[in-house]
Every structure is written in C-alpha cells, then in structure tokens.
Design a protein around this nucleic acid. Structure first.
Length: 494
RNA sequence: GGUUCCGUGGCCGAGUGGCUAGGCAGCGGUCUGCAAAACCGUCUACAGCGGUUCGAAUCCGCUCGGAACCUCCA
C-alpha cells in the first residue's frame, strides 16, 4: 500500500478558501503546475521562498508515493511595463541596457535561477517549458478564445472580453472580486486605448517597429499577452483539468484570475482543481520586490555582503528558516531570526548524527513513543504541508535523542522506525542538507581526531593551557569541540 | 477608496471554542579542571473594547495597528 493511500492530505484551496481533502485525478499520477520567474534579472529571496515552498509540496507528495509531473515555466517572452498594455517589455529593456540579445538575457538569468535553486537544494521541475517555445500553442489558444466569442481583435492586437466572459462565468471568483467593483475602481481609460473595457487584457499584442521580441501570427506581427503562457503550458502538459496549480500570492490577481478565464473560454474547464498560494517574504515589514528594490539577493545572504544582515548564512539554513513558517503566512527576514534558526538547525543535525551512531536495545523502555510520534509527524504534513509542526516534532525527537547515552532504549523495530523517519523527514521531505557533517573529508576527520587525542592527553596531564589552546584554535577554525561522558566529538560549522 | 489577510510571551513562529507547538534568548540546576555542548526545571502570551457561550486567545461586532492585491512582480 502506497503511503498516499494511508495519508489524507488536506490543502488550503485558494478558490474555495477552505482546507479540502486532496484527491488526485489519476492516482498515482499527479499534476503540479507552478508559475516560474520572469528571467530579466536576478531572482531574489522572495522569489526563492515561493519555489522552496512548492519544492516542499513536491517533495512530500513524491514521498507519499505520487508520481508527480511538476511543471514550472520560465517566462522569457517579456511582460509589458504597465497596465495600459503599452510600453516596452522588461526583457527587451534589459537587453538594451546590457547590450545583449534578449535571448542572452534570458539565458543568463535562467542559469542564475537554476544555480540558486540548486544551492537551496530544490529539485528541478520535471518539465520546465518556456513561453517562447510555445508561441504556436499560444496562437492556437487565442484562436480558440476568439472562436468561442470571448476575445476581439483590434489593430493587430487581441483582447480578452472580460464582460462577455462574466455573463456566463464568474470572473473574480479566485481573488474574491466583483466585476462591478473592479470597473468602478478603475481609472479613466486612456483615450488612446483600444480596449473596449478597462478590465480586458491583451492575449496578443501588436509589436511596435522597435519591439525586438516578435512573432508572426494571424493578426500580424506581435507577441503573446501576459497571462496566456501559463494557461497554455499547464494544460498542454497536465491536461485541461489537472490537480494543483501554485504560485505566489501576488499572482492571484490578475494573473491567475486571467488564467482561469482563458482556460474556461478556450476549453470549457477551469484547469486546476486546487489552487495554492505561497505568501510573501518581507524585508523590514515590506514585501521584497524587484520593482521597488526592497530585495535581498541569494548571494548577499550566503556571503553576508549586505548591510541588511550581520553575517552570511548557508543556503540550507535559510531554507530551514523559511520552513519554520507555514508557506501560507507572511514571513519577515531578519538577522536575529536567521541566527536563531541557525542554532536550532545545528542542534537538530547534531542529534540526527548521534542517532545514526547509536544502537538499539532489546526492547523499548523509553517514554518516547515512536509510533505516536511518527503518526503525529505525518499528521503535521498532511495538514496543508505544515512544516513548522513537523519541525517541532523533529525537536521533540532531538531532545529525547540527546538524553540517551550509548544505546537507544528502543527495540530494534522502534529504533529503525525513528531513524528512518528522521532521515526521511529531514532530508527527503524538508530537503535540508547536513553542512556540519563529519566526513566532509576522511582526512580532515582523521586530523581532527588526532588533535582531540592530543587534547585528551593534555587534559589527563592537567596541562589545561595546552588543552584549551587546542579547543580555542579549533573553534577559531569553525570546529566546535563537544565534551561528553564518553570522550569528545566535534562539529564543523560553515 | 475597494477586496483579502494578519496582530500570540524578550525575539521568530505554530495552533486552537475547554487538553494551552517548537526554535532562539533569560533564569535556576546537573555535568565539567574551566567553558562549551547536552539534559532537567522555570518565567514572560494570545492588540484594545464590547458581545455570544457553562467556558474564548480561538466565534461575532467595533476600534487601533500592519501587510498583500486592485499596474509588471514569487
């Protein structure tokens, strides 16, 4: 029996605003689509948080035995600068600025994105489609939407007719908006605008002569609209109806609202059955955002080369920090919070290493009930991927493990369950990495053990100035000596 | 202005109509040559004011404060 058959997973579905029991359309197959980045500049930590959140989702569902097709797009066609569907797209703008081909910009920042995600130990998606690689499919979808009567062509551009759509559908159901309120809240339309209503959005845009990224279409030379690619690529690879669609909270409106409309208008289905939205990472209480410049870049975090942090932090520690909050809550990034997470992380990892080196006993005499703990740990993740609760479970185990000496007071089967679960939760599900692990080199391990032997000798001889010097100098080198009843161990912090 | 969400102890963060996570820091112990680590014990809570209830931090209303969206943004 697969794990997913014995674990009922509940997901906060944005569209119903309720926690719902998740059922896969075609178990064990499962489709997950996540909106990826626009590759016109470096990704910042806010972007990373969303992708780490969905990496957790992907990892847990995979852990449960689902065969997940995980699609995450790369937006490389360039979105426009503003609401009026006017102006230059961001990739072209950046290309001009850096004096590169647009596709060089795309390549540069795509590689950067991949590099960063890999440092955070996030799995790559199983399919990573690009918008420019799906122009033909986008043109097809536009044509379908026109054929169904939900879009109109104007001077070489095509616009989605939101009012028309809303007559037979509910535009705004995801974000809880009413079309009347949206209209009344809109500023006066430019006299220039071709749109029949301010709510209409471009699904194909005529290219001005200076526009670099351009393709042929039945409506002339142009480029696809902002929201179309996700509709096209999600349904192409996952089907007209599929399981889960994720993305950042900021994409809920209008991006995801438009996706639903496009899906419904073109194929009659709204697409995903579960919508998941990751919440924002804030810096100084304000959302990180490329356009406002309130950002922290991954390399600044890793190296500490920023006035926003006291020191650098390893990627896995930032990951651990993020997973200590629920993906649906806002999280503020601060030095103090990172520092606290770092200490907790090291304690957890040290306990795991200790566990791995212990032996079981004949029978379980510990008050720590492994089976109950195991069950509660799964229950945490089943409840809308509640990683903070899972982590609190891991710390419960940590305290217990640390109190043991020599042998674990557990039967072989309990011990095996605890060890394998800790391993699975820490590394497979949470995706953490043990940067303080011994064996960062057998030779280094040997050398440190020689030093620890020398120190023991000095202590036995009551030559404490020598033994303390060894301890302090190792500490300076980032190697912490820990004295226990049965001799000394060490851990390396980076 | 409209829509949505949040306000938890020194800090970070879960959760919830009665059984009151966890991390970090503090305090008191145990251990240690000293320290660190580790363990044990312990102190700080649910923004304010009303209401519903046998009982609310949890539900409802109001007030105050903050955030996201309503323009591209994870």
């Amino acid at each position: 029996m697969a794990l997913y058959e014995e674990n009922d997973v509940y997901i906060s579905n944005s569209i119903s605003r309720k926690k719902e029991l998740f059922t896969a359309l075609n178990a064990p197959n499962l489709g997950l689509y996540v909106c990826g980045p626009t590759v016109y500049s470096d990704v910042h930590l806010g972007n990373c948080r969303t992708f780490i959140s969905f990496d957790l989702v992907y990892r847990y569902l995979t852990h449960l035995g689902y065969k997940v097709r995980y699609v995450r797009n790369i937006t490389d066609a360039g979105h426009l600068e503003n609401d009026a569907d006017e102006g230059e797209d961001k990739i072209s703008q950046r290309a001009r600025l850096e004096q590169l081909e647009p596709m060089e910009i795309v390549q540069k920042y795509t590689l950067g994105f991949h590099g960063v995600m890999s440092r955070f130990n996030a799995f790559p998606p199983t399919i990573e489609p690009t918008a420019t690689g799906h122009i033909v499919e986008q043109i097809d979808m536009i044509q379908k939407i026109i054929d169904e009567g939900f879009a109109y062509e104007k001077n070489g551009s095509v616009y989605f007719d939101v009012k028309k759509y809303n007559e037979s559908n509910d535009y705004g159901k995801l974000s809880g908006r009413k079309i009347e309120e949206l209209i009344s809240g809109t500023r006066e339309l430019d006299a220039q605008s071709e749109k029949e209503s301010p709510l209409d959005f471009a699904i194909w845009k005529k290219a001005s002569p200076s526009h670099i990224m351009r393709w042929n279409s039945p409506w002339g030379i142009g480029f696809p609209g902002w929201h179309l690619e996700c509709s096209v690529m999600s349904t192409k690879y996952l089907g007209d109806e599929f399981d889960i669609h994720g993305g950042g909270m900021d994409l809920k409106f209008p991006h995801h609202e438009c996706e639903i409309a496009q899906n419904k208008a073109s194929n009659g289905s709204e697409g995903p059955r579960y919508w998941m939205h990751g919440n924002m990472l804030t810096l100084n209480g304000q959302r990180m955002s490329k356009s406002t410049g309130n950002t922290l870049l991954p390399h600044e975090l890793f190296t500490g080369e920023t006035d926003k942090l006291e020191k650098g932090f390893a990627p896995t520690i930032a990951r651990f920090f993020m997973l200590q909050a629920h993906y649906g809550s806002q999280l503020d990034f601060s030095s103090d919070a990172l520092l606290a997470a770092e200490k907790g992380y090291h304690r957890l990892m040290a306990a795991y290493r200790k566990l791995a080196s212990l032996e079981p006993s004949a029978e379980s005499t510990s008050e720590f009930k492994v089976a109950e703990w195991h069950k509660a740990s799964y229950a945490a993740m089943n409840d809308d991927f509640n990683s903070p609760i899972l982590i609190s479970q891991l710390f419960e185990a940590t305290r217990t493990i640390n109190s043991w000496e020599n042998k674990a007071p557990l039967s072989a089967s309990d011990f095996k369950l605890l060890k394998e679960s800790m391993q699975a939760f820490i590394f497979d599900v949470l995706g953490l990495e043990d940067i303080g692990a011994q064996g960062s080199g057998q030779k280094l391990d040997d050398v440190i053990n020689i030093l620890l032997d020398l120190r023991k000798q000095a202590r036995d001889d009551r030559d404490f100035s020598l033994s303390d010097a060894i301890r302090d100098k190792l500490a300076d080198a980032g190697i912490e000596v820990k004295d226990g009843k049965d001799g000394s161990t060490y851990s390396i912090s980076l």
